[in-house]
């Protein structure tokens, strides 16, 4: 391929030819497999809580999520989750384990500034935006649902 002459005007575009392309297909496959495996683990945990601890199918979700959060927090503390994240990308970021990792990693990072101003202040540094948009979206949808029920 004939390379474009680099100058200030076209640099942003022309320099793209030097940058290795992200392996999108491979990343999607890795995310699918790891994300899927995390969900399989969740299913196994749900089954375990239903069969051995007498939870109903509906209630077993809560202890399952709690267990996944605990496992993710431990993996973060042992320095494993960031390596998994580099490999799996969205596969380990999207499930609840990714959310737990963002909180635990922030807590670890700011431990040196103390419990209140360090850990507590920065705990939701990364996860905060997820919570804000989650709450706002739930609020808006709740109002829509209410209006819907009034009309019909």
């Amino acid at each position: 391929m004939d390379k474009q002459k680099l100058n200030e005007q076209n640099y942003e575009k022309a320099s793209k030819t030097y940058q290795p392309k992200p392996p999108y297909v491979l990343n999607v496959i890795k995310a699918f497999i790891i994300g899927g495996l995390i969900c399989v683990l969740g299913e196994l945990l749900t089954e375990m809580y239903v069969h051995w601890f007498d939870y109903s199918e509906k209630d077993a979700g809560n202890p399952t999520v709690a267990t996944l959060i605990l496992l993710s927090a431990l993996a973060t503390g042992f320095g494993v989750y960031d390596k998994l994240g580099q490999f799996a990308g969205a596969g380990s970021a999207v499930p609840v384990t990714g959310f737990a990792n963002s909180i635990t990693s922030a807590a670890l990072e700011h431990k040196s500034e103390g419990l209140v101003l360090g850990v507590a202040t920065n705990l939701f540094k990364l996860a905060g935006s997820v919570i804000v948009f989650g709450v706002v979206a739930a609020y808006v949808l709740g109002i829509l649902r209410y209006l819907w029920s009034l009309i019909f």
Binding site: P20, Y81, D82, G85, A93, S102, T104, S105, K125, L126
Partner: peptide, 17 residues
């Protein structure tokens, strides 16, 4: 990492560049 990017143990994926 802390100054410019994310907490060290955060599992974000970085590109090859």
């Amino acid at each position: 990492e802390r100054q410019f990017r994310y907490p060290t143990e955060y599992g974000g994926q970085k590109p090859k560049t």
